[in-house]
Amino acid sequence: MNRAHGVRLDHPIFQGPLAVNVVLDKDHPYADAHDGQGTWLVHEGEFKQGCDVGMVSDGHGFEDSPDCERISGGINSKGPKAVAIGRQANMLQWGFYGGPDRMTESGKRAFLNAIVYMKRFDGQVPLVKKESRARSWYAQFVDMLAHMKPEERADRGERSYAGYLLKQFPAELTADPVDVERLRKWYADNEEYFGPGKDRYSTAIDADLAALQLSNRKPEFLDWLLERFGKDPKDEQALRLAKRYLGEKNGADAATAKAWIESNRPFLFFSDSGGYCWFVDTNGKRAGKVVEASAGRK
């Protein structure tokens, strides 16, 4: 990977202090993105031709905590949402292998600007650890299936990619011939009800949320808890959901949950990748900066 895709040209590392002339070359698109966008050559040299491959991080759920920002993707095998250049708290990942001896002029300038940019994050610490696979992976699975030929989708062999993707969905939706639009509708219908699965690589539809038609990641969830606890502090369903999505400690009982929500409300955010849970933006709280969008972040 020596090319960036999905570059946030409005990001400060491209704005200064040095001018950066990023050229998005449409003759080198990122085929898996199917978007016709051009890509930016960050450094010379290609993988298997004397150069290492570089690294991208999981972009799904990456920006669901306010300590993170995705600056660019890269041409890679994890998909167009993956993060090549991105920041979590005081750490910026520059996922390209090429050092200054290989960087293009624009690559060097953006890198120097990144050094200056990072100074402002002195003292910050990560708000969440990576605990789960974010729900938006399902949207990518559907897109990948949609771009396959029918015969590729029908291949369910042990090592088949389509087989792997289809196993992520409920079995009743994946009978041959695969109806991709049906999978897409299933995701759209259930998007707000995903919760943690049996391990960090799986998720599950939360039957309580689905029955209530209640999103776990929107502020309305917190309002719902407060309302239910206001009526009955022993409400079993509310207690169950409070423990599940506020955490065992913060959702231990109605009084604890109410106090935690009310004392942290402007600084609360929900993170899929952090374990399908509500968290406090402690960096923002220290700085008195309210979370801009506490729910529905990408």
């Binding site: 991105g86 979590q88 005081n90 750490m91 520059w94 390209f96 990072m118 002195d122 990560p126």
Partner: peptide, 27 residues
Amino acid sequence: DDGFTKPIIAMDYVSSSLRNRGKLDWL
């Protein structure tokens, strides 16, 4: 760990080694 608060730019795959279970990781 969380006691390291200096700004840091991690090249290539190094973020994976530096911070256990951070979001900047190859997984």
